[in-house]
Design a protein around this nucleic acid. Structure first.
Length: 445
RNA sequence: GUCCCGUUCGUCUAGGGGUCUAGGACACCGCCCUUUCACGGCGGCAACACGAGUUCGAAUCUCGUACGGGAUGCCA
């Protein structure tokens, strides 16, 4: 048994959304789990829509998620191979030239549809005589090429869907090469998978009919089809397809909103399975627990609210070393002590900046109890403010008789202006004596 | 239109004829803990899309209906 090798093959015609990223992640985890090889393949044969910017964005997203690839290739560098493959197919009688224009084909489809028949290509080009083809050539018309499907039943055992079979007669012969000589994904992908020795193809269920046709292509090209796995698609929280709302679930936006990569990975690796989403940032644990056969066949919903919940837990587990660079960028000071003081009260790392501002920039205090505030000001211990919280509040309590919430809430409101937040004690040294006293007097400071 | 696939607590799902008064996780609610919030502990609420059929017995098998997703490109 050769080593397992999978690939993620995005086309740089747009930014990744959670659905795409999930496909990438599933491949990545499958490879890592099996100690296999994870390849990145850039499917850039659609030169009209592919851009270097999208490609850079895709790479950035994968890297951000921690999915290193073991090798990479791009289809635009392998054009010669596709021509060779087409030649072989033509020689073997499995590919044939077609001369219909796109308008003619569209018309044909429409007619079939209104006649209540499936819009399958009628293979009219197969009946063209040599003279007719010569005539087209003389007119300067160039052919596009189709794969001659064997109208049998194709079946395979799918890694997530079990036994699948398709009657190929309900499919159109797929176009392999455009009129202008550019290769179509259907063939390029198969040629690549053969040349790269891909052993398992894992992709979304939107590819099942592709897979059926491609299995015949693999065989026609002298290879055997890899093991297939089609995971159910992800839908938005409302159940609608993800592609319809690219913007709201783009990886870039999630990242900007403070999503931690491990949170996304955790959720994406588990949604569609029965396994609980564990908020643990350990990527190794995610790999260990990954099992493709646990994925269901039903469309899973991706709920951003759940992502937020997982994310909060991941953030609160972050050690200072994990976030120091980010805090620096946010101009949050205070070092490890500050992070430890606030991390249980933030839902994103960026929110630490909020509490840093509360501590270090002027705010309007809320004086809920003038008596407690005055006593607090009077009893604030001299010297280092670290660790004085207990003694300080005790003396304030003795002086005023205030206890519990009645004691702590006025101090919290005076010092932070808010009812909720991190424990006050560890924050004192960051607010500073002067500011504490001023705020207790009700002054904006 | 045609072809695939799907439909179990709010969500992700377990389950493949009797063990299902349907299990788990997350969410939610309550209680406990607590010097805010959170964490943690304990408990609770809550689902087999609908209709026929097969069977002694159906969440599980069959058919139909409804709804949803995908495919049906000289996109990937």
């Amino acid at each position: 048994m050769s080593k397992i090798k999978v690939r993620f093959a995005p086309s740089p015609t747009g930014n990744l959304h959670v659905g795409n990223l999930r496909t990438a992640l599933v491949n990545y985890l499958f490879a890592r789990r099996a100690d296999g090889h994870f390849m990145l393949r850039i499917d850039d044969t659609d030169t009209e829509r592919s851009t270097p910017e999208f490609e850079a964005s895709i790479r950035a997203d994968l890297t951000w998620m921690g999915m290193e690839w073991d090798s990479e290739d791009r289809q635009s560098q392998r054009l010669g191979r596709y021509d060779e493959a087409l030649q072989k197919l033509v020689a073997d009688g499995r590919a044939y030239a077609c001369y219909e224009t796109q308008e003619e084909l569209a018309l044909k489809r429409k007619a079939q549809l209104s006649a209540g028949r499936p819009p399958v290509y009628d293979r009219a080009a197969l009946k063209l005589t040599e003279a007719q083809k010569a005539q087209f050539a003389a007119e300067g018309r160039r052919p596009h090429w189709r794969f001659l499907l064997d109208h049998s039943e194709v079946s395979w055992t799918d890694m997530v869907r079990g036994d699948v079979s398709y009657h190929m007669s309900s499919l159109s012969d797929p176009v392999l090469m455009r009129e202008d000589g550019r290769v179509i994904y259907t063939m390029a992908s198969v040629v690549d998978d053969i040349d790269h020795d891909i052993t398992h193809i894992i992709r979304g269920e939107d590819h099942v009919t592709n897979s059926a046709a491609q299995i015949q292509l693999f065989e026609a090209l002298g290879g055997t089809a890899p093991v297939m796995g089609h995971v159910a698609l992800l839908a938005g929280a409302d159940g609608e397809g993800l592609s319809k709302r690219l913007g709201s679930l783009s990886i870039g936006q999630l990242r900007d909103e403070g999503t931690e990569p491990e949170a996304l990975a955790r959720l994406l690796a588990r949604s569609g399975t029965a396994d609980p989403v564990v908020a643990n940032a350990d990527m190794f644990a995610i790999i260990e627990g990954f099992d493709l056969s646990r994925f269901g066949r039903a469309t899973a919903k991706f709920d951003p609210a759940e992502l937020v919940q997982v994310n909060v837990k991941i953030v609160q587990q972050r050690g200072f070393d994990d976030v120091s660079t980010q805090l620096e960028k946010l101009s949050v000071g205070g070092g490890e002590a500050f992070w430890l003081a606030v991390r249980d009260n933030v839902s994103t790392v960026a929110e630490a900046a909020h509490w840093w501002r509360v501590c270090t920039t002027p705010l309007a205090p809320v004086i809920d109890s003038a008596e407690v505030a005055a006593a607090a000001a009077a009893h604030l211990p001299d010297g280092d403010l670290d660790g004085v919280w207990g003694a300080w509040t005790k003396s304030v309590s003795e002086a005023t008789g205030a206890k519990g919430r009645g004691l702590f809430m006025p101090i919290r409101l005076a010092l932070t202006g808010q009812e909720r937040g991190p424990e006050i004690g560890p924050l004192l040294r960051f607010i500073g004596r002067e500011r504490i006293l001023a705020r207790l007097r009700g002054e904006t400071a």
